[in-house]
Design a protein around this nucleic acid. Structure first.
Lengths: 123, 123
DNA sequence: CCGTATCCTAAAGGATACTG
DNA sequence: CAGTATCCTTTAGGATACGG
């Protein structure tokens, strides 16, 4: 599977497990919020419209496990939990930006291809 | 969800649908192979060890729909189908490379975070 | 307030058989 | 050769209820 593949894309095979950890449905939106400021659970929940409690918890745990987000419990009376982005999480910003730039540059091409594909006659 | 989020990550929200199309389980490995040379269905299947026929077909259709891969039927006696990467697909190489570079630079950090997380006491 | 636990449904994934 | 169709098993996702 790897002998003569292009080196750049070949690396994709090795790095995919980590990419998959990051490319979770809500992860980048969570990072989007946390990049601005530390945020509490229910605030995140409000900001990410449509997220369920379960999904948010799962995404946060995953980000925390991978060192991109840190979780701090503030022992106030109704307990507060604040999530913030780590330096490691922050370092993802630049490479992400490159990918978003590609998407912006080519979104029209992709959508045109989709329309073309979807409109061609079925069997 | 978007008023005060960091601009770079905020873009993530808008571009995620397209990222998701590309970040499919087998997509980058398929692109890895096609980037080197056009390849036929069963050859791809052999190169991507562990892929099922169904999964490979689905991934190829998706890549084709998004304009990253083209499919050409060669009407020989047992019919042959050759897949190749398009210029659009090729243009993904550089931004991907940036992401892989990040992964390479930080894989140790991520794995350390994972070990640390996994080894801490449960309830 | 911040979750975990449970239950249920929906969707994904694999194996096998069959067609142009 | 290159798929599609079918079935079945596994996993993910959502809703609800409860605990620290």
């Amino acid at each position: 599977m790897s002998d003569s593949a292009d080196p750049v894309f070949a690396e994709a095979c090795a790095t995919r497990p980590i990419i998959d950890e990051i490319a979770n449905k809500w992860s980048i939106m969570i990072l989007s919020v946390l990049c601005t400021q530390p945020t509490r659970f229910n605030m995140l929940r409000r900001r990410l419209e449509g997220v369920t409690q379960k999904a948010l918890t799962q995404a946060l745990r995953r980000l925390e496990r991978n060192g991109l987000v840190s979780r701090q419990v503030i022992a106030s009376s109704p307990v507060a939990v604040e999530y913030s982005i780590t330096p490691l999480g922050h370092s993802l910003k630049d490479p992400m930006a490159a990918l978003y730039q590609w998407t912006r540059d080519h979104v029209a091409d992709v959508q045109a291809a989709q329309r073309n594909f979807d409109q061609r006659p079925g069997t």
